[in-house]
């Protein structure tokens, strides 16, 4: 199963990475096993987002920068508005990083 390392930059991914770094640097955990944990996180996170999350969001804003490189879209929005069923968030600057979903299905 193909996975993205994309989600490692999320809050939960960063927390896991920090934890693994500490445990590896302390000699508690081997680097190889730490990488296995990260790979499993990639799978679990992708699966959870597919199966556990139902919400929809609409995003509007001024597109400051767009970039498409290595099948990854990067958008930088200014004065963006995020609307979901539950809340609305206004952000002066936000970065969107999106991988190609077709890569997972192939």
């Amino acid at each position: 199963m193909a996975t993205f390392e994309l989600y490692r930059r999320s809050t939960i991914g960063m927390c896991l990475t920090e934890t693994l770094d500490e445990m590896v640097s302390n000699g508690i955990l081997s680097p190889e096993l730490a990488i296995q944990v990260l790979v499993q996180f990639d799978k679990s996170m992708t699966e959870a987002l597919e199966t556990q999350v139902k919400s929809k969001v609409s995003i509007k804003g001024h597109l400051h920068t767009y970039r498409f490189c290595d099948n990854v879209w990067t958008f930088i929005l200014q004065d963006a508005v995020f609307k979901s069923d539950e809340c609305q968030e206004n952000v002066s600057r936000v970065k969107i990083v999106a991988c190609d979903s077709k890569l997972l299905t192939q």
Partner: peptide
């Protein structure tokens, strides 16, 4: 998607963007 906006973590199954 996973969003971290205004110190909030928000997950979404689908999102539409108009820029």
């Amino acid at each position: 998607g996973v969003m971290h906006i205004n110190n909030k973590d928000i997950l979404f199954n689908k999102a539409t963007g108009e820029f």
